[in-house]
Amino acid sequence: MRKTTHLCLLMSALCLSPFASAEVVSSDSTGFHIKQTHRYDDSATNAYRVFVDDIDSWWPVDHTWFGADGTLTIDPVAGGCFCEIAGDRQAQHMTVSYVDPGHVLRLTGGLGPLQGLGLNGTMTLTFSDSELTLEYIVSGYPSVDLTQLAPVVDKVLSLQMTSFTQSTTQE
């Protein structure tokens, strides 16, 4: 089932490519900057609500630490948690640092393997009617070549945001 879901999301991303743009703005040995724009057929207010309140319904389960056993949540307050909880197993993916409901959500931290590499980032999500802009700036003292890692992170984020825009359009 997971392979089918992953394949469907990948095919959807390819089909929706005219409605999304993604790029590694810059990268070097100590960091990178990703910027993506994704289109949807909805208001900024509702898109923001879906992003925050329904993240568990659109975030691909194969890009979580605990799979189907976990529940993703975002507490949209300064200092709030973008967390994944599966009983006693818990992960804080990012921390909310700025909230302008219906317009901007800013999170800090390293997603997925970035956290384990000691890297930190700032992700700013800007919502407007029919469009989400995501910027993720990551830096640190890496043990891997970040110029090689940046395109991978860009692709994964694009997959996740495509899933988000599809769920927003369906509501």
Rank of each mutant, 00 (worst) to 15 (best):
M1P: 11
L107Y: 05
K35P: 00
W58P: 06
S139D: 14
S130T: 14
V96G: 01
M11A: 09
D53Q: 14
T169Q: 03
F32N: 04
T73A: 14
T64R: 13
S167M: 15
D145C: 07
S143D: 11
S29T: 13
M11F: 03
T133R: 10
V153D: 02
V138F: 04
W59S: 02
K3L: 11
I137V: 09
F19A: 09
A20W: 09
V99L: 06
F66A: 11
G110N: 05
V77S: 10
T30K: 14
F32A: 08
I85P: 00
V99W: 05
V61Q: 08
S26C: 08
V96M: 03
I55D: 04
E131T: 10
A78L: 12
D62E: 15
G70R: 05
T45R: 10
H6Y: 04
G112D: 10
D69R: 13
D28N: 15
D129N: 12
V52D: 04
D129C: 02
D54R: 15
F19M: 10
A86N: 08
G80Y: 01
E135Y: 00
A150C: 03
E84R: 04
T147M: 07
T165P: 08
S26D: 14
L14W: 03
Q36N: 12
S163R: 01
H93F: 15
G140M: 05
V61L: 08
P60A: 04
D56H: 13
Q36Y: 03
K155R: 15
K155E: 15
Q90M: 10
Q90K: 15
G79C: 07
R49Y: 11
T122E: 07
C81S: 13
G110W: 05
M161G: 00
D69M: 06
M94F: 09
V138H: 05
I74L: 02
T126D: 08
S167E: 13
C83M: 01
M1N: 10
A68V: 02
S43G: 11
V52I: 12
G121T: 06
L159P: 02
V152H: 11
T30Y: 12
S130K: 08
S29E: 15
M123P: 00
G102F: 05
P18D: 02
E84T: 03
L132M: 09
A91D: 03
Y98W: 06
Y141K: 14
G70I: 04
D28Q: 07
T122M: 01
M94C: 07
G118S: 08
L14A: 10
R2C: 06
T122Y: 00
Q160M: 09
R106L: 01
L7E: 15
T126Q: 10
G31R: 07
T73K: 12
S130H: 13
L159M: 13
M1T: 10
D62T: 08
K155H: 14
H33S: 08
V24R: 09
Q170I: 13
